[in-house]
Design a protein around this nucleic acid. Sequence first.
DNA 1: TGGGCATCGTGATTCGTTTCACAAGCGCAC
DNA 2: GTGCGCTTGTGAAACGAATCACGATGCCCA
Lengths: 204, 204
Amino acid sequence: MPKATVERLPLYLQCLQAIGDSETTVSSDALANVAGVNSANVRKDLSYLGSHGVRGVGYDRLELCAQLRRALGLTDKWPVVIVGVGNLGSALANYQGFDASGFNVIGLYDADPSKIGARVDGQRIKSMEDLELDIKKHEVQMAILTTPAGAAQEVADMLVSVGILSILNFAPALLKLPDTVKCRQVDLATELQILSYYQASRPT
Amino acid sequence: MPKATVERLPLYLQCLQAIGDSETTVSSDALANVAGVNSANVRKDLSYLGSHGVRGVGYDRLELCAQLRRALGLTDKWPVVIVGVGNLGSALANYQGFDASGFNVIGLYDADPSKIGARVDGQRIKSMEDLELDIKKHEVQMAILTTPAGAAQEVADMLVSVGILSILNFAPALLKLPDTVKCRQVDLATELQILSYYQASRPT
DNA sequence: TGGGCATCGTGATTCGTTTCACAAGCGCAC
DNA sequence: GTGCGCTTGTGAAACGAATCACGATGCCCA
């Protein structure tokens, strides 16, 4: 499946949920409008799912949701860990959408001894030693990294060494990882700078 | 300038800062290695800056930084507002990198009266009325949206109506905006779901 | 039961981006 | 000075993705 398609599937899922119960069926055109893409593009994307829409009618909303979830590997909940419970880590820990999205935060971890034991959204912050043990015990494969930039590489190395295979990195640092590990980078400064470019190059 | 190039410029800037003072000059190859892209790609990207590297030597590190900043429109600091001071908004308000990246948070705003007046990272949380006034007064063009999903569209409409032209949206909601307004979406669930796809489709 | 309408699925085309490959240019050493 | 090694800048080729265009197909209603 093309990379570009994979990156749109979550969008479709979100759009379908936004459309809600009112419609039992959705056309590629309707979905395209909500998602802001071309309808042929939607159809091509969905065709990778082996999805069978009905000509003249569209796609069954619920079935399409199910197919998207299946394609994205969201049939079971993925256990994830959050490493680094600063402001951002706390914010993510409080995020209520994990469950609905197919994930389950099994623990929060921090290197700072003074934070350990504190509670965030009902979960007790645990130590880095616990992190290693928990990852192995629960066979966790996905981690969210919200440490300071300086600590990110070191923590990432440790995560990889105990079996983590996917990292969502919020630390403003470029991680050097083995290419068996998939990483996605979310960077506030980068996003703002991209906006800045378009802002600056507006025809005034 | 190609979209793909624009989205890499901040990355180069970050890499150059990571390389630090040790080197006065950088080759496209060195930069490519750190950034994780092809060196021909780096050269082509930089050629859009009208940059003049020196054959046999490379690019002057500081000059290249300056050129990148100029191209990205980071010569002056952009004033930005943060709207919605929940966990995520607070986290962003505490982010120390704004200054270095070329931005200046001029205010934090929330619709919840009980939050108004509280301080986050030294800034007083202000009301939505103040938000409108401040945007007009300081001619703010960029906003960071960290409200709950339900309020995002309404707030965005207001922002647009008072002159905001770029929105960085962290709310898990798809904004309907006039196409004069540039928006970038950052969505935790989406990112995790993309990772989930690759995780699920690994050859076990 | 048949005709018309709506919509899908997909080959062909276009577009944008990445990569390759190499000539041109600069600097250093001898 | 002259030659050699390194690195840029860029045309050409390869690749991947978006869009177009249309045949195929199912549904609804007369």
